[in-house]
Simulated scan of single mutants.
Amino acid sequence: MSWIKDVYGTEKPIIAMCHLQAMPGDPYYDKGKGMKDVLDKARHDLLALQNGGVDAVMFSNEFSLPYLTKVRTETVACMARIIGELKDEISVPFGVNCLWDPIASLDLAAATDAKFIREIFTGVYASDFGLWNTNCGEVVRHQHEIGAENVRLMFNIVPEAAQYLVDRPIESIAKTTVFNCRPDVLCVSGATAGSATNPEILEKVKKTVPETAVFANTGCRVNTIEKFLSIADGAVVGTTFKIDGKFENLTDEARVREFMDTVKAFRDRK
């Protein structure tokens, strides 16, 4: 898995979430403050994350609640504008996540030169968003059609707010996903953003597919990240970087720095 260092610049990378505020078309978009406010807050979070020492960032429409499984055009357009305006200020590798639409995520990645995307690519689920189906073969074909072959695909195999329609052992899901779909990364999540990943599930997945990168996807905190990184190949981190550790808040640079100091000390010991 030498590609991890090539893409993220280090082993055991921390990918920080840059959560974009609600945008035009989203139910909670603040029309009075407009897109300038969305852009200003995205810039604040990006700079706080970078100054705090994260290895990479991932832009997501996190406040487009409730989420769609087919993202609308205006959302992708707004995300592209924001990333485009911030491009000269981005100093770390970055990815994108249009919740929850892998085609839209790939289109945005191709337009902005993102290095990776994270999505739900496989499975059929009973979810808060209704019956949630996927078509990985169609997505990967689209990836090649638009020239995005080098965009790394991070498969969330424990979707938030959803459960497989038919119960399957996580080991079976990991094994068949790797065999059939060749993911770059398998992401293991908790129930929602900020909810801790179960380390036992994380370990089961890594033992089942040792040659595939496995990331902890939610709920990593400064007092748990060493445990997660002792199992996983990296982590995606969002809520714990926020002011007071609350999902709704902006990023707190001091919290980021404290977290990354712990991560760097852990990596130095390995």
Rank of each mutant, 00 (worst) to 15 (best):
M1E: 08
S2H: 14
W3C: 01
W3R: 07
I4R: 12
K5M: 06
G9N: 11
I15Q: 06
I15R: 07
A16Y: 04
A16I: 06
C18I: 09
H19K: 08
H19S: 12
L20I: 12
A22Y: 09
A22P: 04
M23L: 12
P24Y: 07
P27L: 09
P27F: 04
Y28Q: 13
Y29C: 02
K31A: 08
K36Y: 09
V38N: 02
K41I: 09
H44A: 03
L46R: 02
L47R: 14
L49W: 05
Q50G: 03
D55G: 03
D55R: 01
A56R: 06
V57S: 00
V57D: 00
M58K: 03
S60C: 14
N61T: 04
N61K: 08
F63S: 02
P66G: 02
P66N: 01
L68A: 11
V71T: 14
C78T: 15
R81P: 00
R81K: 12
D88P: 03
E89C: 00
E89V: 02
I90D: 01
P93K: 09
V96G: 03
V96S: 02
N97F: 09
C98A: 14
C98T: 12
C98H: 04
C98S: 10
L99S: 04
I103V: 15
A104Y: 08
S105Y: 01
S105P: 12
L106D: 05
L106G: 02
L108R: 13
A109S: 05
A114C: 04
G123W: 12
V124E: 14
S127W: 05
S127L: 05
G130F: 08
G137S: 07
G137L: 06
G137T: 09
E138G: 13
I146N: 12
V151S: 08
R152D: 00
L153Q: 14
L153E: 06
M154R: 06
M154A: 13
I157R: 06
P159L: 07
A161S: 14
A161H: 15
A161Q: 13
A161C: 10
A162R: 10
A162E: 08
Y164D: 07
L165D: 00
R168C: 06
I170E: 01
I170Y: 01
I173L: 07
A174E: 07
K175S: 10
V178K: 06
V178G: 02
F179K: 14
F179D: 11
N180P: 00
C181K: 10
P183F: 07
V185M: 04
V185D: 03
L186T: 05
V188F: 07
G190R: 13
A191G: 09
T192M: 11
G194K: 11
G194M: 10
S195H: 13
S195C: 13
N198V: 07
I201F: 01
E203F: 10
V205G: 00
K207T: 10
T208P: 13
P210V: 02
E211A: 15
T212G: 05
T212K: 11
V214R: 08
V214S: 10
F215R: 11
N217V: 00
N217K: 07
G219A: 10
N223C: 05
I225D: 03
F228D: 08
S230N: 14
A235D: 04
G238M: 11
T240Q: 15
F241D: 02
K242H: 09
K246N: 12
K246F: 10
E248N: 08
N249P: 01
T251M: 02
A254C: 00
F259W: 00
F259R: 01
F259D: 01
F259K: 02
D261C: 02
R269I: 04
